Every structure is written in C-alpha cells, then in structure tokens.
Computed example of a mutant assay.
Amino acid sequence: MDSTTSDSADQQSTSASEPLPTTAKQLDPIDQPARPLGAKRFALQAQRHRHSVAAWRSALTRRAAGGAGRIITSADGTLAFAVIRIAKGLMVERRHWPAAGLRVAQTMVFDDVGGFDRWCDTDPLRFGNPQLHAQLRREGHEAFDGDR
C-alpha cells in the first residue's frame, strides 16, 4: 500500500510540473494591424489633408487681417500663430495641424507683457522650434510696444 500511494503522488507531482498545452489565440479582424495604404488611397488622403489645412489656415489669416495682426508659421507649416493687438491687450491664436493626429487650436488673451512672457517661458515650443519661439516673442513685444 505504501508503494502505490507514493507512485500516485509521484504522478501528481510530475503532471503538475509539465506545462499545460497552449492554444493560439486568434485575433479578431478588428484587432489585427491595419493594411498599408495603396498608392491611390495615400494620394487621396494627402490631397484631402492639404485642402483641409488650407481651409484652416485661411480662417487664421482672415482673423489676423481683421485685427491687423501678424501670422508666424513654422518651417514645415504644421504650426502657426496669429498675433493680434486687441483693446484688452494681446491675443495669440495657436493652430497646430500635424499630418496625422488631432488638430489643436488655442486662443490666449494677455493683459500685459509679464503674462505673455510667463506663457512664452513655459511653452514647450522654445525647445522644439527655438527660432519660431523667438519670433513669436518678438512679435508679441512689438504689439505691446505699439500701444505705448
């Protein structure tokens, strides 16, 4: 009786240490990676992006022209600022439209140069595009100095 008890215990310990058979999980078609775009589809998507960016940019241009402001654009054209002098101080509109992803439009109003400088000091643009940042700061200071 002792030998059968120990044999069954050995079988249980051996079966516990063996890995269980794994089954391959099939991905749902919605979870699979996207197919690469064909040449025609890619060209159509790029054309639509150009048209929508042009419409976005024209709205920014009209706003700057109506307020006698200036537009500053990055070299790649994905980021633009409209610096407009208003009665309360300075309005800065920032529009970012990357080739893929979300578009962002922000409008800030600054009462004084100090608030504008604090915003410039904390804006991450100063690291990513220091020339555009310096030009934005210059335009903002010129707009505030034009009031004096």
Rank of each mutant, 00 (worst) to 15 (best):
L37W: 08
R41Q: 15
A99S: 14
F81T: 03
T78F: 01
H49I: 10
L27I: 05
G69E: 00
F81E: 00
Q45P: 00
F42W: 10
K25Y: 12
A100H: 11
R35Q: 12
A39H: 04
L27D: 09
Q47N: 04
R57H: 12
P19C: 01
G66V: 00
G69Y: 02
K40H: 11
R62I: 11
E93D: 02
L102Q: 15
W56E: 13
S52Y: 07
R94S: 06
S15R: 15
A75H: 12
A16Y: 07
E18Y: 12
A16K: 06
P19S: 06
E93W: 01
L60C: 10
G67F: 05
S58V: 11
I72G: 00
A82S: 14
A75F: 07
L44V: 05
L102M: 15
W56F: 13
P36Y: 06
T61A: 09
R70C: 01
R95H: 05
E93G: 01
A87L: 13
T61M: 08
I84F: 01
T61H: 10
R57D: 06
A55T: 15
L27P: 03
G69T: 01
R62H: 15
P21G: 07
A34K: 10
I30A: 15
R85F: 04
P98W: 05
A54C: 05
A39R: 13
A75M: 02
L44C: 02
A34N: 08
V92S: 02
R63N: 04
A68D: 14
R95F: 07
R70Y: 03
W56R: 14
Q45E: 13
R41C: 01
Q45S: 12
F81K: 01
A65Y: 04
A82V: 12
L37I: 09
S74Q: 05
A64W: 02
Q45G: 11
P21N: 09
T22I: 08
R35S: 15
L44Y: 10
A59S: 14
T22D: 03
S15Q: 15
T73P: 02
S15C: 06
P21C: 03
G77D: 02
R48C: 13
A16E: 13
A99N: 11
P29M: 07
R62M: 10
L37N: 05
R50M: 11
G89T: 05
K40R: 11
P98I: 08
P19A: 05
L27N: 07
P36A: 11
A54V: 09
D28C: 07
A82H: 02
H96R: 14
A82T: 09
L20E: 06
A43T: 00
R50W: 08
A54K: 08
